[in-house]
Structures are given as C-alpha cells and as structure tokens.
C-alpha cells in the first residue's frame, strides 16, 4: 500500500468513452499499481470518480485504460465507497461489466 504521504494509484479498464460518470457511485474493477509482488491485484468496488481538482486532492489517483489497453492521458480521482465480492456473481462468457452493475444494484 502507498504511504500516508503518497496517493494510492489504481487503474481501471473501460469498454467505451463515457463509461466513467462523475458525481455518482459507479461499480468498477480496480487494479492496484503499488510496486511489489502483488502489483496488479484486482478488486471489485463501488466508487465515486471525479476530474475536479478540488475533489481529486482528497481522493486516490485513477488511471484509465481502454478496451484495447491504451492508457488515456487524463488522470481521475477515485474514492472507494464499498467493496464488491471478488467472486462476482455472473454468467461466464457473458459481459463482466453487466455483472458488476447488477452486483452494485443488488448490494452484493
């Protein structure tokens, strides 16, 4: 984990532009970019994201990659509201993001 003076840095993948919505709780997958053996460990969460500098000052840092893995130049702020299970209920070979949205709604 990052020290208290350093911001925790996370990364997420989105399917299309506009999938990250500011000011509302969004389900997402985060991977931890902290250096070390466990770098890139995944978490499923409900979080709030923002691009407003005043919000970002108190938030963790979020990097965003597209569906083909391209890192977008903009950095976001992210605050985890709650965890979702790592064994996320859903149907194999079907859209993971649909499963995330359903889990967030059902309060899994």
């Amino acid at each position: 984990m990052a020290s208290k003076t350093e911001k925790q840095v996370w990364e997420t993948f989105v399917r299309r532009p506009g999938d990250l919505k500011e000011g509302e709780e969004v389900p997402m997958v985060l991977r931890d970019l902290t250096s070390g053996k466990k770098k890139y460990q995944m978490r499923h969460v409900v979080a709030v994201v923002s691009r407003k500098p005043e919000d970002m000052a108190s938030m963790d840092q979020l990097q965003v990659r597209t569906v083909v893995g391209i890192l977008l130049p903009e950095t976001w702020g992210v605050k985890i509201v709650r965890e979702l299970p790592i064994e996320l209920p859903g149907r194999p070979y079907h859209d993971f993001y649909d499963a995330l949205r359903k889990a967030a709604v059902s309060g899994s």
Binding site: F13, R15, V29, G69, I86, E87, P92, A99
Partner: peptide
C-alpha cells in the same frame, strides 16, 4: 472454474500479433 461468477479477463496481446480488445468475457 466457477459456473456462476465472473471476473475481468484481458485484454491481452495474443497470437494474432495484436491486442484486439477481447475483454471481460472469460471465466473465473
């Protein structure tokens, strides 16, 4: 392999020589 759970898989630079964006449709 869990029959009722999913996780993010991919994208991944595969044998075709590209990372195609095949993501989030795998197995956990």
């Amino acid at each position: 392999v869990l029959p009722n759970c999913v996780g993010l898989e991919g994208p991944y630079g595969e044998y075709p020589g590209y990372r195609t964006g095949e993501m989030g449709n795998g197995i956990l």
